[in-house]
Computed example of a mutant assay.
Amino acid sequence: MDTVKPMARPHQTLQKFMHLALGWICVGLGIIGAVLPVMPTTVFLILAAFFFTKGSPRIRHWLISHPTLGPPIQNWEDTGSIAPRVKLLALSMMGFTLGAAIVFAAPIKILVIQALCMSAAALYILTRPNA
């Protein structure tokens, strides 16, 4: 006897599509972040894995199983840890970005906001366990 799969409700289909689209956007931003020193990579990949949980478990599995992209996501999901090399890279890029803003004479108001935001992010990164 044939079993008929119930059709997905329209809002479920839209929700799945949105999770899938947001996941791919985050993967794209993560890859851009791997090339550009001023954008993060791991944060976007962790977000992509989150979105793919509901959008496409198959793509999520591919992402977390990827030999290059997967380990930072798995470290974060398993223990909330960040590899020391990644911490150093993140802090270096923050310092480089703030230094560039100073060199290019950004307004003091912008420099203060940037320094405060980066300090908070750096503190968060430094307080995570090492992978």
Rank of each mutant, 00 (worst) to 15 (best):
M1T: 13
K5A: 15
P6R: 08
M7W: 13
M7L: 10
A8E: 05
A8W: 09
R9N: 08
P10E: 03
L14H: 02
K16S: 14
F17L: 11
H19Q: 09
G23V: 09
I25A: 10
C26V: 06
V27E: 06
G30L: 12
I31P: 08
G33Y: 10
V35S: 15
L36N: 02
L36I: 14
P37E: 04
V38T: 11
M39F: 14
P40G: 03
T42R: 01
T42A: 05
F44Q: 10
F44C: 03
A49W: 09
F50H: 06
F51A: 04
F52I: 10
T53R: 01
T53I: 08
K54T: 10
K54F: 15
K54P: 03
K54W: 15
G55W: 11
P57V: 05
P57Q: 11
I59P: 12
I59G: 02
R60T: 06
W62F: 13
W62I: 08
W62S: 07
P67W: 11
P67T: 08
T68M: 04
L69T: 15
G70W: 13
P71G: 05
P71D: 04
Q74T: 06
Q74W: 03
N75D: 15
E77Q: 13
I82D: 04
A83C: 05
P84S: 12
R85T: 12
R85A: 09
L89E: 00
L89Q: 01
A90H: 04
A90T: 05
S92P: 00
S92L: 14
M93C: 01
M94E: 05
L98P: 02
G99T: 02
A100G: 02
A101D: 09
I102W: 03
A106S: 11
P107S: 11
I108Q: 00
I108K: 00
I110T: 01
I113T: 04
L116S: 10
L116C: 11
L116H: 02
A121V: 12
L123T: 12
I125D: 10
L126A: 07
T127Y: 05
T127P: 00
T127N: 03
